[in-house]
Design a protein around this nucleic acid. Structure first.
Lengths: 125, 125
DNA sequence: CTGTATCCCCGTGGATACTG
DNA sequence: CAGTATCCACGGGGATACAG
């Protein structure tokens, strides 16, 4: 995807869509969650998965998602440092929505240009 | 939900998530689509469904979604004018993703505060 | 490798007032 | 009723440089 969603998303109390979008609606958030959906990833791997994101913004999103309890950050005491990010159980609960988004998008792409489609939709083609 | 996503979202060619998020990822877009999901609605009805949105922004979103082929605008030649907005078939194709988002949000709310939940998740409680 | 610190810029939303 | 016109303010992203 290409950018353009604000980050500071607050939930409207009691609204289901709001509750969910507050967690996955921020800029780059769907990409990050999708990248983490099949296992932990390091900072540099995330950057490779989402080439268009800057380090600053990726850091910001990761911190924010960590605060919200969507993912966990693990620092390995190596040199140079290794950091892994992993979805929490809350983060896992968001995946059905992400998958649905990816499915809908795949169907739209299929309709648009059937010959260009590839088998498995992914950020990391 | 409460605001905070930018509007001008452009799809990354060939990326399914991007294709879908370009259509439903804009600010207020999920709310608008959700409000239209069970039939056409007038401008003023949309405003009532989404109290926090301003007329200017709602107009902007509606124009944008119309351009993208997500919804259609019907002006009835009455006085004063009556305008109805309705999902196109493309718009309908986005609904599974919206519904998934609502479902996930409902489950999160249930976990957070079981006693506060209401039967049918909706913007128009 | 995994970040942080600045600086700048512009899109975007809110409020308000006005119109056909 | 269904918008449009203006003005403003702000925060968030990009780029770049630097750090532990």
């Amino acid at each position: 995807m290409v950018l353009r969603m604000r980050t500071k998303v607050k939930a409207l109390p009691g609204c289901p869509m709001s509750r969910c979008m507050a967690l996955l609606g921020g800029c780059w958030t769907p990409e990050v969650l999708w990248s983490l959906s099949d296992g932990p990833r390091r900072f540099s791997e995330l950057r490779r998965d989402i080439p268009a994101i800057s380090a600053k913004v990726l850091t910001g999103r990761l911190r924010d998602l960590e605060e919200r309890g969507v993912l966990a950050r693990h620092v390995m005491p190596t040199s140079p440092p290794t950091v892994e990010y992993e979805l929490t159980s809350l983060g896992q609960e968001l995946l059905p929505a992400i998958r649905s988004i990816v499915e809908v998008g795949s169907r739209l792409l299929l309709r648009d240009s059937p010959r260009l489609m590839i088998a498995s939709p992914s950020l990391r083609g």
